[in-house]
Deep mutational scan, measured.
Amino acid sequence: MDTYKLILNGKTLKGETTTEAVDAATAEKVFKHYANEHGVHGHWTYDPETKTFTSTE
């Protein structure tokens, strides 16, 4: 398992979190669920070199 990072740049919520996942697709599902639960619906990007997802509203 690898550690993946999420950076949230929402209108009402900003911050970072991490998750352990078997691959990027699994981490993306976890992070999108997390963002949706916190009302963040933004544009998603992923940097495979740093294993970092960013959601920007």
Rank of each mutant, 00 (worst) to 15 (best):
T52H: 01
K5T: 14
A21V: 03
V30W: 15
T3A: 05
A25C: 13
E49R: 10
A24L: 08
E28F: 15
S55W: 13
K14V: 11
N36S: 13
G39H: 06
T50C: 04
E28H: 10
T52Y: 02
Y4T: 03
Y46F: 07
L6D: 04
T12L: 11
P48C: 05
N9L: 13
H33W: 11
P48F: 07
H41K: 13
Y4W: 04
E16D: 05
I7D: 03
I7T: 03
E37A: 13
E37L: 14
K14L: 08
T54Q: 06
K5M: 06
T56W: 10
I7V: 10
G42S: 05
L13W: 15
A24N: 03
E28S: 06
G39P: 00
N9E: 09
T56L: 06
A27K: 02
T3W: 10
G39F: 06
T45K: 08
N9S: 08
T18W: 14
A35H: 02
K5S: 05
L8P: 00
E37W: 07
D23L: 02
T52D: 00
Y46H: 00
T45Q: 09
T54L: 07
H33D: 14
E16G: 07
T12I: 10
E28Y: 15
K29Y: 08
T52S: 04
K14A: 08
P48T: 07
E16S: 10
A35L: 12
T50A: 06
K32S: 05
H41T: 12
T54G: 02
H43E: 15
H41Y: 15
K11R: 12
N36I: 14
Y34I: 08
L13I: 14
I7H: 04
T26R: 05
T3D: 05
H41I: 13
V40A: 05
G15E: 13
E20Y: 11
E57Q: 05
T12C: 15
S55L: 15
T17Q: 08
H43D: 15
T18Q: 09
Y34M: 05
P48N: 07
M1S: 09
T19Q: 04
Y34N: 01
F31V: 00
T56G: 05
L6C: 10
G39D: 07
T45F: 08
H33R: 14
V30K: 09
E16K: 07
T19C: 15
A24M: 11
H33A: 15
T50M: 05
